[in-house]
Design a protein around this nucleic acid. Structure first.
Lengths: 244, 244
DNA sequence: AGCCACATTCTAACATGCTAGTATGAATTC
DNA sequence: GAATTCATACTAGCATGTTAGAATGTGGCT
């Protein structure tokens, strides 16, 4: 049974200074491992091994897995086992729905009152994006992409909204890894720029439209990818639980 | 110190059939107590008393409180204590933002493809709403109000979105209790009807506008109420942590 | 009298032990 | 040989024990 060692070497360090925050760090470590595909979809998680590897007890691990289940990254089968959630097309759609709704409303709501320093931050970010896209720096571009959206939510000041969007984005990141391409970077850059333009013009509706267009473009590519690599997806047609 | 008994009599029963789901039931019980204002904002929670009252150990209670913190209903002060979150104006704004974004996008996305049975369900619900409003049945109307929004998300089929909206709505329910009035019911009914009209006409944008108008109307009343009863709110101006 | 240091006490966070439910595989029966 | 039943091993969920940190109140000091 335990033919594979399950050493979980790739997991980050969770040793913290004081007492508090252990659970949060465990969440972070496992989430990172899942999103980076070090833990591929469908992998069974050995809780005991996780505890020994991270040097913590089962309490924080249990709670961490529970939260990750809420985020849709793992699937807990009661009394049976916990596995890394397979990527379901329905989840991809849902996560993109969440991002479309919240991010569009964010820019719509910001356009009217957005301050100059916000625009400046976005402009600076886009300059870096352009450079990263031209240099073909995939990882750098990804970081800047995240930062672009983060800047917007920072300006909005809604912590829970930000957390929700981040959660939705993480649910998509496992696929995005496979999607990252130079052409996509250039397109993303242009789409981001359109958002900025609309924000600068204080046109909320246009900003929302630009954001939706951006996310829909990503969605379209993800779906194309899904067609090409059906093996990493679970249950395309059945058990999707669409409204009856 | 323990001059008050802290009997927590109002808490519902959490005894379940089998082994699983205890934590979920504890969450439900405490959440209900908070939303119904049996546990007023600012109340300190006695974890041990909760355990004895509910007949469970500290494990499910801890996890339940942790989840409720994520929902913004309680505030955990490390090593110090847990209190029922005071209602912050910023949270009200955030929760309404979430609802506006997700519910508007929901009806926008549904308008194009909405099926006849969905419209029928909504129509039936609105007939009941009208009856409840005219009869002055506050509790009944509230239930129907929830059902109206639930029907929409049921049709959408996105579980996590539904959970997010529900969480946001619960964060607002503590105030809504104080706001529930006959006039508000009539207005709500009319606003709901506008949403239905637009859905029936397959006009997504109009449906979204109607939904936003509905939620904004609620928001306006909540803010008016906030002015009138500032005592239940915490820190109007300071420590709101708006983007610096 | 006002202020500061210290100790007590309370709490959440963490570790560990235990139980029940599930799945798997082997043995038995048809 | 195939299907079914039973035993075993494994897992999540729950209970309980332990520890570290924070608030508060008290005593001494200025």
């Amino acid at each position: 049974m335990n033919s594979e060692a399950k050493s979980y070497d790739f997991l980050g360090d969770v040793s913290g200074p004081g007492r508090g925050g252990t659970t949060a760090r465990v969440v972070e470590a496992i989430r990172e491992a899942i999103v980076s595909l070090d833990l591929p979809p469908g992998t069974q998680l050995d809780k005991a091994a996780l505890c020994t590897r991270l040097g913590v007890s089962r309490f924080p691990v249990s709670e961490a897995l529970s939260r990750l289940q809420a985020e849709g990254l793992v699937e807990i089968r009661p009394q049976s086992g916990t596995i890394v959630a397979r990527i379901r097309l329905a989840d991809v759609r849902e996560n993109l729905f969440i991002r479309r709704a919240l991010e569009a409303e964010a820019v719509r709501s910001l356009a009217g009152t957005c301050r100059a320093d916000l625009l400046d931050s976005l402009r600076r970010n886009l300059r870096y994006q352009k450079a990263a896209a031209e240099a073909g720096d995939r990882k750098g571009f990804h970081v800047l992409d995240l930062a672009f959206h983060d800047i917007i939510f920072q300006a909005l000041g809604f912590e829970r909204v930000k957390a929700m969007v981040e959660s939705a984005r993480l649910g998509l990141d496992r696929i995005r890894r496979l999607l990252s391409s130079r052409r996509r970077h250039e397109l993303t850059f242009q789409e981001h720029e359109a958002v900025l333009q609309a924000l600068a013009a204080h046109d909320g509706e246009a900003a929302a439209r630009a954001m939706v267009a951006h996310l829909d473009a990503v969605m379209a590519e993800l779906l194309t990818l899904a067609e090409a690599q059906p093996d990493i997806f679970a249950d395309q047609a059945r058990t999707q639980g669409l409204a009856t």
